[in-house]
Amino acid sequence: MSEIGSSPQDEAPSPLLSLQKVRKSFGDNVVLRDVSLDVAEGECVVLIGSSGSGKSTLLRCINLLERVDDGVIRLDGEDITDPRVDADATRARIGIVFQSYNLFPHLSVLDNVLLAPVRVHGIDREVARADAKLMLERVGLADKANARPDALSGGQQQRVAIARALVNKPLLMLLDEVTSALDPELVGEVLDLLKDLKSEGMTMVLNTHEMGFARRVADTVCFLHGGGIHEQGSPEAVLGSPAQERTRQFLRRLHTDQA
């Protein structure tokens, strides 16, 4: 912390999120071997890669839901992999949305969104309620505030999950295949919401199989393969004319699958 704060790095703005040589394994299964990645403030990084390549694991490591085996993750200059860092406070500064929504089924939609502001940030319930209502309005679900999550469609549930993460006012949003559990006609409503977020300058790291969407929102696309970032660049470069044979293979397979 202190070495970062005192270093005079004024020329290039330091990245909001920086991963250096991150390694993560589950038992003998080395999922992430050596991942290094910088994400600037306001940047949208899209991770692509085959199923099992470690995209979700990488997001869970960034959010400290998994402990890395080695390497450093810095958020806003602070090394969040340092065991002395308050992990709960760090998680509260990073929003994550899961593939399967993971709403709390025993709480109403509004209470799902209210939980963190009231319990983590200690905001007065009435004040937080106004905030949460506003957030639900943003995602187009103001009228569902009192509904139970299981009374909502998948797309609606995912929008609640996004609202629940956003109400924490995170520095960074992580989105783990947020549309892959949705019916095709519901995908659009979630993607539109993400595009709005992006245009408001939210820093995002997401993984998706929607290459069309990746092309539209990504500033950077990273192809995850073999435990590392195999290829990285602009969406035009990585998706349009990939330099690596593995990337080409992956994209070809994706195209034939989706055709």
Partner: peptide, 13 residues
């Protein structure tokens, strides 16, 4: 476990 993950990801202890 995904319920734990969702709760902890929001910053809950």
């Amino acid at each position: 476990p995904s319920q734990w993950a969702a709760a902890r990801s929001l910053g809950l202890s």
